Every structure is written in C-alpha cells, then in structure tokens.
Amino acid sequence: MDAVTCHYCGARSLIDRGKKPTTAPIPQGMHVVRVAPPSGNAAFTVAGVVAGMMVISAIAGSLAFSRSGASSAAGARPLLAAGPSMYFDDRPMIADVNGDGAPDVIGKSSIPAREAWIGAYDGRDGKPIWKTAVLAKDAMTHEAKRAVVLGRVISVDALGKAQAYDLRTGNPSWSVLLGEKARRVCQGDGVIVVETVDDAKHGLDPASGARRALAKDAACKPVPSSNADEAPGYKLIGWSDFDKHGLPALHGIEGMTAHHALVPSGPGPRFMLGRRSKGSQVKMVAAVDRKKVLWKDVVPGVDPLTTKVMGSEDAAHEGGLLVVPYDMKDHGQGTRLACFDGGTGKRLWDVQIHKRSQVSHGIATSADSVFYATWTALYVFSLKTGELRYTIGTEF
C-alpha cells in the first residue's frame, strides 16, 4: 500500500519504501513513514515496525468480507458478522435487555473506517436485539464512557454530552450537556450519577435527564460500564490503595510482587494480582483474608515460560469464582483464560480464547458466562466449564 489510515487517531500517512526518490509535495495533513530495507539501521527498523503495524491496521479495517462459518472450537456457534467485517470493540456490559430474566450483552460495535454504534445481543446465542443510530465521532474515542444504569444505556462523549438510550429498545431517550469529560458513571439512590474529570458529580433523572440534587458523600454503586476497573460486585485497585483496604503491601507476599488487587464488595477473600518476584517472572494470583495468604498460584495452566508477563492485570469475579486472562509469548498462540475456585485456589479450567490479536477491551461475567472482548470480537464461555458458547464480531 502507498498510504494508510490509523483507525485509532485518524492520521493519514504515506509509505516510503526508499525505492525511488520523489519530488512531489506531501499532501497537507499527511506525513511520511519510512520502511527500512533489510539492511536498514536501527532507527529505520523502528520506523519499519511502526509502518508495518499501520499497514496491518489499514488492511484489517478496509477489507470487506463475509464470515459465516463456525468457529474452530468444537461446539461453538458461527460468528455473527455478515457483509463488511463487524467488530465488537468494547468492554462488554451485562444486563437483561429483552426482559426474559437472562443476562444479555451490550457494547460498542463498528464497521472499521465506516461507522460505529452501541448494540445489544442476546446472552443465550449472541443474536442482535437492537442497535443505536450511528455514533458521532466524539462518542467513539477512548475518552468516551458507556454504562448501563436504571433502565438506560448511557453514552458520554469526549465533549461531555450524555446521551441516554432505552435499555429495552435502544431508542434515544434524552441528552444533556455536562460541560466536562466523564470519568465514571454509577448508580445513586434512584438517580444516574456521572462523575467528571473535574471531580464534580452530576445527578440525572433516569426518565428525563433532568438535573437532580445529590446528597453530600452519597454512595454510588458500580454498574456495568466501559470502565475496566470496576463492575457490579467488585473493583480493581492499584497497589497504592492496598493499605486503605487492609491488604498486603506491594512486596508483602513472599515470592510475589502484587501490583493490583480484585476486591469483591461482599465478604470472602480478596485477590492479589501480580507476578513472581524470584526467578523468571510469571503472572501470579493470591487470595488473602486481610493480610493472611489463603492460597497462591501461577496464573498460567500451561508451561509458564511460554507466557507473557507484561500487559494488563485484568480479572473478573462471579459466584466465588475468579477468572484471569493471560497472553502467550508467541502471538500465534494468542490469549488464554484461567478459572480458579476463589475459596480453595483449585484451578477449575484453563482454555485458549483465540490465536489472534492480544489486544483486549476487557472482561465481564454473569452467573453462567464469561465475556472476553478482544480488539475485534467478543468471545463468550461457560463459567462452569470454560466451553466456548459463541462469538460476536470478526476474528482479527
């Protein structure tokens, strides 16, 4: 390709392979990325790697093809993409959309380089329930926030506009300007609360969006949202907050350095997430009761030295079970998912999610399923067995 577009920031770049000089002016708004020949020096090699990543992104976004065949996993249902590649590219939000008592999944979906929307999918088989109108550009950036609260799906764009959609139908309900970017959406006492980056809290009526007064220091419960550090029933904290929660310090567990912890909202153990501190570093998890270690183990259920340590320390908790994803060193081996009994530390299952991109949008759980979102697709597994149930989107 001679030019590529970055789907993350929208920048357009010309590719210079150094084959022949050119005197043509560079179009306004574009820049040149030089691709190193095999004998290129280190600086050009770095540029070549960057260019290669941009080319891969451009190819992934611009190819239009249909995928209707079944997944390679035994018993898995077909991908639900048809026509141009449809991506599910959001942290999955879990709620009962169609009123059948079973949890469904909501999240931002897109056709790359064309349009994006918020869609709801049946939690039993992944079939679409509804989709919103196409989102504006500012509702698609990493600064935008999405949440499900009090019968509404809330989308707050990068300009501080909060748009509410009806949870049952996806139809727009109301919108309001907050005047600042959102940091978090949560549920107060019968009111939707949007916390903005200036530390202000905005109370909004679920039915109309009208401003509602908030009691000082009123509690605000976590809701299903695009924020990766909390979910109904638990939150993820960094090591600087360990002492506040009565947890062991960063290096307080022998043989382990814990950078994050998953803290359930109810009673029971807390889970330290980190890596082995002696020898070759490997992802580890430990359960603690205050500062007493109940159990600890390496996260990988395969040869630990074939796995990556760097990357997000994500996890989810449901019904006493802890689910932790981890990446393989070989990108061709993709990402895996391990499930532990939170009380005993017994490894219940360990399965491969995919052999594709190791970019993650997040993980969520329901009473019977695990929802893991990559850059392009959502994989849904049985929480009990780890069996792949279905996939939404297009495998990268």
Results as ranks from 00 to 15, higher is better:
Val4Cys: 08
Thr5Leu: 10
Gly10Lys: 07
Arg12Ile: 08
Ile15Val: 15
Ile15Cys: 02
Arg17Phe: 11
Gln28Glu: 15
Gln28Cys: 01
His31Ser: 15
Val33Leu: 15
Val35Ala: 08
Val35Gln: 12
Val35Pro: 01
Ala42Asn: 03
Val46Met: 08
Ala47Pro: 00
Gly48Gln: 02
Met53Lys: 01
Ser57Phe: 13
Ile59Arg: 08
Gly61Arg: 02
Ser66Phe: 01
Ser68Met: 04
Ser71Ile: 03
Ser72Asn: 02
Gly75Tyr: 13
Leu79Met: 13
Ala81Val: 11
Ala82Trp: 08
Gly83Cys: 11
Met86Phe: 06
Asp89Asn: 15
Asp100Asn: 14
Val105Arg: 05
Pro112Val: 06
Ile118His: 05
Gly119Cys: 04
Asp122Gln: 10
Gly123Ala: 05
Arg124Gln: 12
Asp125Met: 01
Pro128Ser: 03
Ile129Arg: 11
Ala133Gln: 14
Met140Ala: 05
Ala144Leu: 01
Arg146Tyr: 07
Ala147Tyr: 03
Val148Thr: 13
Gly151Gln: 05
Ala158Asn: 05
Gly160Phe: 00
Ala162Gln: 03
Tyr165Pro: 02
Asp166Ala: 14
Gly179Ala: 06
Glu180Trp: 02
Arg183Lys: 12
Arg183Glu: 14
Arg184Gln: 13
Cys186Asp: 08
Gly190Arg: 10
Asp199Pro: 00
Ala210Met: 07
Arg212Gln: 14
Leu214Asn: 04
Ala215Leu: 12
Lys216Ile: 07
Cys220Asn: 06
Pro222Ser: 14
Ala228Leu: 13
Asp229Val: 12
Glu230Asn: 10
Pro232Lys: 07
Pro232Ser: 11
Ile237Ala: 10
Gly238Phe: 06
Leu250Ile: 07
Met256Trp: 01
Thr257Leu: 12
His259Lys: 10
His259Glu: 13
Leu262Met: 12
Pro264Cys: 07
Pro269Gln: 06
Phe271Trp: 04
Gly274Pro: 12
Gln281Thr: 13
Arg290Ile: 05
Val293Trp: 06
Leu294Gln: 06
Asp297Ile: 00
Asp297Ser: 15
Val298Phe: 06
Leu322Thr: 01
Val323Thr: 10
Val324Phe: 02
Lys329Leu: 14
Arg336Trp: 07
Phe340Asp: 04
Asp341Val: 04
Gly342Leu: 06
Gly345Met: 08
Gly345Asn: 09
Lys346Asn: 14
Lys346Leu: 10
Gln352Trp: 00
His354Lys: 07
Lys355Val: 06
Arg356Tyr: 03
Ser357Asn: 11
Asp368Lys: 11
Val370Ile: 15
Phe371Leu: 06
Ala377Asn: 05
Leu378Ala: 05
Ser382Arg: 11
Leu383Val: 07
Gly386Ile: 11
Tyr390Ser: 06
